[in-house]
Simulated assay, not measured.
Amino acid sequence: LTHQYLELNALVDEFRDYNFTVLGFPVNQFGHQEPGANKEILSGLREVRPGRGYVPNFDLFEKGDVNGFNQQPVWKYLKHWNPFNSNDIRWTFKERFIVDATGTPYIRINDYTDIYTHGGLRDDIYNFLHYGHISL
């Protein structure tokens, strides 16, 4: 699902005027999909996945854990807010959170749908930014 990096850049470009951004948290807890060291992640994105000189236009944090004893504080906070019948994130490419500008979580989405598929994350963000709610 690394093609979604391109879609994440598109989201940031589309909603820039709404004080919108994406926060990326690389993780290696799901099928060893991010095995490189922190200093290798950006070059891996640029050269391999998705490649073709890709550079994220959003903040990409250091790699860390989303589950378990060493989970990053942001994940502990988000999971405490809405445990989604589980204390663990199942996969960061499909579990997403929409958080407002004050840091208050609004919704937790567990969805394999591509970002720009009708009814996908892009539509959820649009509805949140324009109407203050998401139609589920």
Rank of each mutant, 00 (worst) to 15 (best):
24 G>D: 01
10 A>K: 05
8 L>R: 03
69 F>G: 09
95 E>Q: 15
74 V>R: 06
81 W>D: 07
86 S>I: 11
123 D>V: 04
23 L>W: 03
93 F>I: 09
87 N>G: 12
82 N>D: 14
106 Y>K: 13
96 R>Q: 14
89 I>C: 13
131 Y>W: 06
44 G>A: 07
124 D>G: 00
36 G>Q: 13
30 F>R: 08
88 D>K: 15
76 K>G: 14
76 K>N: 14
34 E>T: 14
67 N>I: 06
134 I>S: 02
125 I>C: 00
12 V>Q: 02
38 N>E: 08
69 F>H: 13
21 T>W: 03
15 F>E: 00
7 E>P: 00
136 L>D: 01
6 L>C: 05
94 K>Y: 12
15 F>S: 01
73 P>Q: 13
12 V>M: 01
11 L>V: 00
129 L>G: 00
92 T>S: 14
83 P>N: 15
76 K>L: 14
69 F>E: 13
43 S>N: 13
57 N>S: 06
90 R>F: 12
4 Q>R: 14
109 I>Y: 08
125 I>D: 00
11 L>R: 01
106 Y>E: 08
28 N>Q: 09
50 P>V: 01
88 D>I: 15
85 N>F: 13
118 H>S: 08
110 N>V: 12
37 A>Q: 15
129 L>F: 00
36 G>A: 11
23 L>V: 07
55 V>G: 03
70 N>P: 03
108 R>L: 10
104 T>P: 03
23 L>N: 02
119 G>V: 09
113 T>Q: 13
15 F>R: 01
34 E>D: 14
118 H>D: 07
6 L>I: 12
49 R>Q: 06
126 Y>S: 03
28 N>S: 12
44 G>S: 11
123 D>L: 08
11 L>A: 01
